[in-house]
Each structure stands twice: as C-alpha cells, then as structure tokens.
Design a protein around this nucleic acid. Sequence first.
DNA 1: GTTAGGG
DNA 2: CCCTAAC
Length: 549
Amino acid sequence: MEVEDFLEDEKSEMHDVANTEQTMGSIGNEGSSSEKIPLENPEGLLKTKTSEVDAGKQNAQLEETVPSSSLNDNHIDQSGGTGECPNPPDGMMESGSSASAAGTGLKPDFSKLNGELCLDKLSIRELHEVFKATFGRETTVKDKLWLKRRISMGLTNSCNISTTTFTIKDNKWVKKDEEECNKDVDDSFTQDPEVGAADVNCKGSPTSHGSQSEDHQSGSGKKSRNNSLEIDSGSEHLNTEQRAAKRIRKPTKRYIEELSEVESRDYSQKLISSPKSVGLGQISPRSCLRPVKNVPSDGRTVVTRLDSLGGSGVQVPYVSRVRRSRPRKNVMALMKFNPSDMGMAAQLVKKALGVRSSQTDDDIGSKVLKRRYADQIQQPFFAELEKERQNSVMGRIERGENLGRSQEDSSGDNSDDNVVTVPTAKGGMRRKHHRAWTLVEVMKLVEGVSKCGAGRWSEIKRLAFASYSYRTSVDLKDKWRNLLKASFAQAPPDDGMNSRKPTSMPIPEPILVRVRELAEMNAQVPPNLSSSKPSVGSRNMHETKSGFL
DNA sequence: GTTAGGG
DNA sequence: CCCTAAC
C-alpha cells in the first residue's frame, strides 16, 4: 500500500524533482517563506502531510524531514546543535555547508551532491548502480523518478557520511556497506520504503539519522526556547566547523543511560504507532535511534546505536539504566544531622517515587534537583531525605542567606557557605548554589584573563580569586564563557534600550569591550562578526596594570 | 588536579 | 552551577 502511495506521490511530484535545482536556487530568501518550501521540497515527503499540519509546525517538519538540503538557518536550532555536516567532504569545505547556513539555503548542498551524480541524465541502469552504491544493495524498481528521489534522499540524509571522506564512488565505503546490508531483503524495502532506507543508512554509514526523533525533543526543545541560545548555538556550530579540532567527546554515561531509557520506553510505544512516526514519518538527522545489533565474535548480542556526538559518528552502547553510584555526600551528612527521619522512610518512599514524573514539584523545582531525583529514583529513601532537608533545614538557612547576598561587594567572602538553596516563595527565582557574580568579581576575572590568558583558570583563580573561596576555576571558566557570549552578543541594531534582559546586572560596556579585546587576542572570537569590530583600542587600558603577556 | 564543553 | 570526558 505504501508503495502505491509513494509512487502516486511521486507522479505528482515529477516536475518538482526535475526542477529541483532551479527551484532551490530561488528559495534562497531567508527561510521566512516557510509555506513555500514544502511544496518545493525535493523529496516530496511532505506533500501529503503538509496540508494537515498547521503552518506553524512546518518549520519543524521541514527541518526534520529534509535535514541537510534545506539549511535555512533561521529554522535551525537542533540541527545546529548536532551538526549534521561537521566535516564536509573536501569539495564542500570552502563553498559548501557553512555558506549554506548563511541563508542561501538549499542550493549548495544539494547541487553538490547532484553535481556528483547528475541524476537527471542517468539511465535506469545507471540509476540502479548509483542506487546500489548509495544503499548498498540492488533494486528492481524501474521507476526512474522513484530511483532518483530515493537516491537523492539517501544522500541527503547521509550527509555526514562525509566524515569518513565518503564519496559515492569510493569502493571502500560501498563495499563495507554491502557487507552489512546484505541482510536487507529487497521486499522489506518495497514494503516499507521509508524504513528500509533509513535502516540501510544507519547501518552502512557512520552517519546518523533516525526515523524518529522524539527522544531528543526534550533536549533540543529546551534549547530552542531561548532565542539567544539558539542563535548562539548556530554560530558555535559554524565555529566548530571552522575551528580545526575541537575535542570530540565520547558520550557520557548519563547521556547513554538517559537515551537508552527513553529509547526503550519509546520503542515499546512505537508499536502502538504514534501518528507522527508512521508512514512518511519524520526523518531526523540527529541520530539513528533504531537500535543496531552488532554480533561480536563471542556470540553475545550487543545493542548499540549510532549517534552523532560532536559531529562524529559514535557508537553508543545501549544500556539499561542502573542505579548511579553512591548517595551524595551531603545526604550522608544529612543522616547525621537528622537521624530521626529514618522512621519516616517507609511513608516517604511512595512520595519519592512520584517525584520524578510530577512536572510541578515547584517548591523544589530546580532542574538540578529534579535530575538528582531522577538519578536516585532507585533510592527513594535518600532522595526523600534530601527533599526533606530542602524543605526544613535548608529552607531556613536559605532565607537569611539569600536576602543578605545581594549587595556584597569585594568584601564578601562569607566563605563558610551554608550552601544556598531554593527559597523561592513563588516568583522569587530559585537556584541552588548560586552566587551572582559581582562587578568586582567580573573585573577581577577579566583582569586575570588579561594576565594569564584565557584557559589558565586555576592560575587566575590563585592570583585574582584567592580570597573568593567559592569561585572555583571552573566557575571562572564558565563565567568567562558567558562574558564572551555577552560581549559579542550586544544588539547591533541598538533600538530600544529595553531589549536588555531584566535578569542579571547588565555588565557595563567598558568591561565588555575589554572582554572583546581579550577574546580577540586569544582568537576566541566567534567567527561571524569578527570583522565588524573596529574595537577602538585601549580605552581603559590604564586601569589595569596589565602588560598582558 | 585541570580544562573544555555540554546541560 | 553541575557533570564528566579528556588531558
């Protein structure tokens, strides 16, 4: 059935496919015209679905379905995060993907791919070859358009195959792919083209994309809520593309566990078929969530999935979540402090179990806390104790602490910190161990960086923050990162001065200027607006006795 | 123990 | 701020 659907769909799309290249060129005007795009979407995937989706959602849909061919930067938040094309193939390096992100949109990527293939001119037989090269297996489908579409989609979606210096003609890749994909029987494909394709892609390449992306939504969703962050991550993305080698991180345990957790949950639900993920479902560039089975020599089955962390294809083991480590030390402390609570344990278990799912545990609302609870879900007892502590002891300490904290200047090192917690009687912002950075501290930090250079945080800590026991080198680093962000983020339009974020003291311009200078010297400048800064020199140089380096 | 980065 | 991999 789906095939028919598909083919039919295909016919109606014929001209689109044929004209893909031209139309794409013309779409270029900043993704603002979102209604337009789906119609011209080369894959034609959205055709049927689109009409059902309200305009607002189209962006998201588009993003997920046509990951790399429609890099309209305005829409991209999550794809920016992962970076589907962190390492464009040789040819793409200069002109390619980074340029496309600038808003000219679709053209570069696709045409590049197309340039390599010229699908339009190929005969069916040739198409078959290409198909084989792309998916690693033969096809019997005669429909030229179907093939073209298939192929282009396959290529598009496996964009970050490029990580492995992939070329279609590269025998190695093809070969490797063939081995792995031989099991894929043809009819599995014909019965369910979408899934089939997805499968092949996942197995055959280090690329990552999946047929469902709900798992990640939570994460990326958070991000996209914040506008500045969104933009920022976009630029960071570019940044990483240009910066040669950023450390690539292996997925953290937590990441693995959490992902696995969601996955397994999601997996079981999937049979019940959420309308979203059925049929022409969204294909996410982010990761192939369909677990891939590897059968090592010992015969045991290890389930992993591919994910693109830091842009590199990474095998993420599929584990079941196990209780994490030991109880936090402060919990132990608590037990000393309030041993009598033990009696309540039994009652509390139930409540503690509920903590995790309840979205509205506002009183203890900090994200951190929630996370901890989640971690300790198998130790409800401890979790509850901690909660209890929050409510009683800490609450009191907090109240006094937090109010007095606002104006302390350089003088303030009440270093015997009664760790600040979450007072928050509705509306008051609650944060756990939060100590706002004072101007003085910021200045010290800046000065420190100017002396020691950014990166030598422990040094700076020693020199400039010796008296501030509560600022760790990591804190300095974090703050610097934020300063950097702030210093380059100032709104160029400079319209209403209302655009200031109400939260947190705005950091005086001179300091920001200074930060910029330092950043420039350290080549920490975000590449995008690097040129536009005259950065009129040593304005407040005299204040700092720094001969930087 | 420090640094870098993601959350 | 927290967490944790990489150094």
